[in-house]
Simulated scan of single mutants.
Amino acid sequence: MFALILAVAVMLMGAGYAYWTDSVTFSNTVKTGQVELAYDTANAGSIEVGPNFNNNAVATGSVSYSEDKKIATVALNNLFPGAIGEVTLVVKNLSTIPVKIKEIKLNSISISNLSKDNFTIGAKVYYGNELIKTFDNILALEAIPTIDEVVPANTDVIVKLTYSMPKDVTTGENGSIKFNVTPTFTQFNEVNEE
């Protein structure tokens, strides 16, 4: 009872007891970058052939893509001594971060009625309009050596493959070559040391 009388007396004197609370909530979201590349199938891989007899399409070629658009298959048919041409493939860099081109492999190579030694495939690799690497004969290598070039996000990588067969080559009829073109990209990592 004494405690109640004391509490009423303190309140009547104008003193009081108050208790306040407050809280702060900190919300944070971290999103990592995304590496995503795919062949541009809208630009279905242009193939130019020549010189051909009377400008008729003697040598022919085609490009097809895997369902996930990660592999391009190039087929060159009806090749003959003196046949030349160019295949242009466009890889869309849909990544949100820069990537590095590691290598571009030619694999699943199938050659019919031709000698691999008498046929060359050169390569030029671009990003945007900038030429970053040139290789004379990647068919002999079966993989372009490590490129290690940084490609900015949302920039296309263009691979131009040139093929040629010397005019003095003796070869069987119905010569053809088919191969897959598989580019390998890695996430770009660089630490600024200051």
Rank of each mutant, 00 (worst) to 15 (best):
162 T>S: 15
164 S>K: 11
183 P>V: 04
152 P>L: 03
179 F>S: 05
182 T>C: 08
159 V>S: 04
182 T>R: 11
170 T>E: 13
165 M>A: 07
173 E>G: 13
177 I>L: 06
171 T>C: 13
185 F>D: 00
159 V>I: 15
186 T>Y: 11
160 K>R: 15
178 K>F: 02
164 S>R: 11
153 A>M: 03
169 V>L: 08
169 V>M: 06
174 N>Q: 13
156 D>K: 08
153 A>L: 07
183 P>C: 01
184 T>K: 13
159 V>G: 03
174 N>R: 12
154 N>T: 06
176 S>I: 06
163 Y>D: 11
173 E>M: 10
161 L>D: 00
181 V>K: 12
165 M>V: 15
179 F>L: 08
159 V>K: 04
170 T>D: 14
172 G>A: 14
171 T>P: 00
169 V>K: 12
176 S>P: 09
152 P>N: 06
157 V>R: 09
186 T>V: 13
151 V>C: 00
186 T>C: 02
170 T>S: 15
162 T>F: 05
183 P>L: 02
181 V>W: 07
174 N>C: 02
179 F>N: 06
163 Y>Q: 11
150 V>D: 11
162 T>Y: 03
177 I>K: 06
187 Q>M: 11
173 E>Y: 01
155 T>R: 05
163 Y>L: 09
173 E>N: 14
152 P>D: 04
180 N>W: 11
165 M>W: 01
170 T>H: 06
159 V>D: 05
186 T>G: 10
175 G>C: 04
155 T>Y: 11
156 D>M: 10
166 P>Q: 09
181 V>N: 10
154 N>K: 12
162 T>C: 03
167 K>S: 15
179 F>D: 03
170 T>K: 12
188 F>Y: 15
153 A>P: 10
153 A>N: 15
166 P>A: 14
154 N>L: 07
182 T>S: 15
152 P>A: 02
177 I>Y: 02
169 V>H: 05
185 F>Q: 02
153 A>K: 10
162 T>H: 01
182 T>D: 09
157 V>P: 04
160 K>I: 13
164 S>V: 00
183 P>E: 02
